[in-house]
Design a protein around this nucleic acid. Structure first.
Lengths: 205, 205
DNA sequence: GCATGCCTTAACCATTTAGTTAAATCATAT
DNA sequence: ATATGATTTAACTAAATGGTTAAGGCATGC
């Protein structure tokens, strides 16, 4: 059997959208079939079980999340411009993919072993020994371009700032008191505010 | 019927721990009964349905999360000390409660209407019209104690930095490359690094 | 002693859901 | 035209799970 790749893609797309919204436990095979515009029988014909389908989706999602993060790491000499570019492209990336980051963060904890395996594979495939973003910050510190922050903690902070409104939009809207976190206006303001805060916070006076 | 409050509490505690780990969809009534050291019949005798039990737990968790956030807002005059205290107590609070923040953020999106309702109730009960943390920052800006950041975005950034390692520990460990996010050492370093970054980022030069 | 309320036991019901099956249909290429 | 692979239909199975029921046990206080 050779299987129609077009249909396979439709299934994966549908599965992605359902898993992103509801997680593994909340997802229903019937709903995935419906969104793919096919029937449950065919769904199981392509992917034997929910677990297998989930595994496929989860793997590509985790890869994508890390992939996009390192794609936002450019070879810019100037650390200031490097940060600006990173924040802009990274925020564009995650804001574009509704519920992705929320899903991956939730499931990464449920499937922590699997997450680690996938992640290590990606790293070795790319020939990385360390997160390139961390590496870039480390280097900037070594070169005296910025003050001596802990690179790991700095990256953690940076990602945290970028990610939160897309991990828990409703909580953010209510608790922080921001009306609309999905508008283009919010996105642009967010970029500026994050950049200003970290740049002020980083530069060696 | 008057119901034994001790048993009721045992049930709530058990339900909290299961819901925190697995979320609504992943939680099993049987497991909740087991952890409470009672049987399923009694569980349903106290809380008619899974939905009702969840509602009870979710309400107290959401209240708690916000409660603890505003408890970390002190009446400190000096904005620098205010920030230091906030970061320290807030981080202590969330690091202490394994999976709580992760659970609330995940479910707040699944139950966004309910979240909003609960949240508005808390706000009006406390007589708040605006998040006191945002308010404090706003005031500090007005007083010229710090530079003119957008208070909403600043608070969003601050919470994001604090929360991320507890929302997705496995993802953080792998992606950022931090070995252990549950140690006391990590916690203390985190406090310092966040404070330094935001303080440097905030002060009007 | 016995009534009352809390709790257990264990079987049971109903529903949801993952997964299967078999037969029929459709499209396409040979 | 027919064989082949893709897809549908619809009924079905098996298991998990939420929820119920009835009978009885075990305290405590009267």
């Amino acid at each position: 059997m050779q299987l129609n790749t077009e249909t396979e893609q439709k299934i994966i797309d549908a599965a992605q959208s359902v898993f992103r919204e509801k997680g593994l436990d909340g997802a229903r095979m019937q709903e995935i079939a419906d969104r793919a515009g096919i029937n449950k029988a065919l769904l199981h014909y392509y992917f034997r079980s929910k677990d297998r389908l989930f595994q496929t989706v989860f793997r590509t999602e985790v890869q994508g999340v890390f992939q996009r993060m390192i794609e936002a790491v450019t070879a810019t000499e100037n650390i200031r411009e490097f940060l600006r570019t990173f924040i802009n492209t990274y925020l564009d990336n995650i804001s574009e993919r509704s519920y992705l980051i929320r899903f991956v963060m939730w499931e990464s904890e449920n499937k922590s072993d699997e997450f680690e395996t996938i992640f290590k594979q990606v790293m070795s495939t790319k020939g990385f020994t360390k997160n390139p973003l961390v590496q870039r910050i480390e280097q900037a510190v070594a070169d005296g371009q910025i003050r001596a922050v802990n690179p790991y903690h700095f990256v953690l902070s940076l990602i945290g700032m970028c990610v939160l409104p897309y991990v828990a939009p409703t909580a953010v809207r209510n608790i922080i008191g921001i009306r609309d976190t999905s508008s283009a206006e919010f996105l642009e303001t967010r970029k500026k505010e994050i950049f200003n805060l970290v740049w002020q916070g980083l530069k060696s006076k």
